[in-house]
Design a protein around this nucleic acid. Structure first.
Lengths: 138, 138
DNA sequence: CTGTATCCTTAGGGATACTG
DNA sequence: CAGTATCCCTAAGGATACAG
């Protein structure tokens, strides 16, 4: 079982953020929830660039114990779980949006995908609000 | 010599951003420049949570070849170099600011440091502009 | 379907000595 | 001062088989 990332938190907010979600998988999982609407273990497995099962399980636990995710049963299917973002997790969306905007500016492949980008740029606050509501309802 | 982080870039902007500066050191170096005004190898060594010399050298190269940093000689001291952010690098400041705001909300240690935070929150655009100008001049 | 458990490899990175 | 060069070690993470 992969181990928690070593913490270097020294009182610096950037270091704290990196310690919490700055590994190479956590933000991709959160991205899956925010942008792809993923909810289940299986969906993360498909979407997250081929993450290994043990690594995924470990990150889900980490994010849960950091109170960024919460796990609950699917009311319709008892053998299935849903992972949702907490408010703390939802508050990471602005970080992700800034990353997307940066990539849009400097990555040709990203730049080519106009749909989402124009929404972010034309009405950032509205777009953010829209995402927040969708995540809270789900 | 540490190796470049493995790339998973799949056309996703979040993955692209993580591939570019999502390792455990790059953002701390950029933070040093933005928040602490660090410019030289020696300053990074002191400030960056005890980064090893070889790792620092490697990251500086990586960030340079990603066109996030530029290296130049100190005009007054020929045996010394300055690392500055390019526009591409300066454009990462909003990402860092979002991370700081997130930590301010959820990390007690960060929350305690009111000075910078109040500046960000009261006049984000102005604060950003101020940083940009300072970085360009330096 | 949602994980665990193991095995195994490798990249990341600490420590330290050395160099132009 | 600004790095290189080594050595070495461990944690991160693939692959795969198995389990509740």
């Amino acid at each position: 079982m992969p181990h928690p990332v070593k913490k270097r938190h020294t009182g610096c907010p950037v270091a704290f953020a990196l310690d919490t979600f700055g590994d190479r998988w956590s933000l991709l999982i959160i991205r899956d929830i925010v942008l792809k609407g993923s909810k289940t273990y299986g969906e993360f497995l498909e979407a997250s660039e081929g993450i290994a099962t043990n690594v995924l399980a470990d990150r889900l636990k980490e994010l849960e114990s950091a109170h960024i995710l919460v796990k609950s049963r699917d009311p319709n299917n008892h053998r299935r779980y849903f992972y949702r973002l907490t408010e703390k997790g939802i508050d990471l969306v602005p970080v992700i949006l800034e990353m997307i905007q940066w990539s849009a500016k400097y990555d040709p492949q990203t730049k080519a995908r106009k749909e989402v980008l124009s929404k972010i740029e034309s009405d950032r606050q509205g777009f953010l609000q829209e995402i927040r509501e969708r995540l809270r309802e789900s």
